[in-house]
Simulated assay, not measured.
Amino acid sequence: MTTKRWSNSSIKNIDDAMDALVEDYFHYDDLSNREAEYIKENFADVNGEGNLILEEVDSANFNFPNEILQNIENAQNHEIDESDKENSSSSKRFRSVTDEDTDSFLALSVNKNTKTKTKSDLKVMLDFFISVGEMRDSVEIPAKDLDSLLSRFFLGVLKKNGDEYEPDSLSSMFNSLDRHLKDSKSSISIKKDPEFNHTRRVLEAKRKALKSLGKGSKPNRAEPLTTEEIQILREKRRYWNT
């Protein structure tokens, strides 16, 4: 029987050490069997009956070479050291972060003006909800009921002085509520869910109606100068500089 011989340098981990241990076991067991056969053949009498008594050795009590056992221990220590190094490296690479930390980070990253606008828009909606007897937070209202409330809100909402809102102001309220629902980790999306098609259609129709009344056109905005007006200004400038 031919077995693979192992050197100290070739044993790098526990698996290699165990392979070496098993192969040495069979190697020495094979040598023992050969030695027994040799003794029987050379020390027996002519009738084949020898006076030499051979006792079978219990393999459980067989002492394996200390070198192999030492290699196993060294391999185990090596793997423990490598594991400790990897764990230490990971602890330096990743800081400990909780779900609450991620929520706080997002809250801090939101622009202050955006927070103020969202809070103001939600207050207007809350006032409307209460006026029609709805006391639940928007996050707790089922999609069907919330769609009905929002479509009525966008159609009928007015400023405190009774004037209509600008079209973009209504859209801003819509976005503020969508942002509030997301921040509250609600599964509802008033921008995407089909349950809110009615609200989105009412909002779009209201925007068009307001624009037809002149809302959103920014009448006080300065109109750009024409080419002729720019030329006149240049000529006047040359006149005053002469």
Rank of each mutant, 00 (worst) to 15 (best):
D15M: 04
T102W: 00
N66F: 06
D58H: 03
K192V: 12
L225Q: 07
E55N: 07
T102V: 07
I188K: 15
E195T: 14
L149S: 09
S120N: 10
N42M: 09
F174S: 09
Q76H: 04
D29V: 09
F62I: 04
D24F: 10
L122C: 09
V22H: 02
T98Y: 01
S151C: 14
F105R: 05
P142A: 10
A205P: 08
S148R: 14
A17W: 04
L158D: 05
F64R: 10
I14W: 04
S171R: 13
E86Y: 00
E55T: 08
K4N: 02
D45R: 03
I188W: 01
H27N: 12
L181E: 06
I39V: 03
T116M: 11
S96N: 12
S90V: 05
A209S: 15
S91C: 06
K215D: 02
E100N: 11
R34V: 03
L181C: 06
M125T: 00
S172P: 08
L181K: 01
D58E: 05
N66K: 14
K185V: 09
N63A: 02
S120G: 05
S109R: 15
H180M: 03
L126H: 11
N61I: 04
P65I: 07
T226E: 09
T2S: 09
D147M: 00
N61T: 07
R95D: 08
G133N: 06
I80R: 12
S91W: 02
N220S: 14
F174C: 08
R238Q: 07
G48A: 01
S83I: 00
E79L: 10
N33M: 07
S91D: 06
R200H: 12
N87R: 02
I39M: 01
S151H: 11
G216N: 11
F94P: 01
V22D: 01
D101Q: 00
V139E: 03
F43P: 00
F105K: 09
I80S: 01
E228S: 12
S10L: 02
M1H: 12
F174G: 03
L155H: 13
S88A: 14
L181S: 08
E223C: 06
F62H: 03
N66A: 13
N8K: 15
T102M: 00
D15L: 09
E49Q: 01
R136I: 04
I232K: 15
E73W: 08
F94M: 07
E37Y: 00
I68V: 05
I232H: 13
E204S: 15
M18Q: 09
E41C: 02
D183G: 11
T227I: 11
N74M: 12
V46T: 11
R95C: 04
N241R: 14
E166V: 12
L203A: 06
T114L: 07
G156A: 15
M173H: 03
L177W: 11
D163H: 13
K117N: 15
L146N: 01
T2A: 07
E134A: 07
T242S: 13
S176W: 08
P65T: 12
E164H: 15
S88E: 14
I232M: 08
T226I: 08
E235W: 04
T3N: 10
S96M: 07
N66E: 09
D30N: 12
I130W: 10
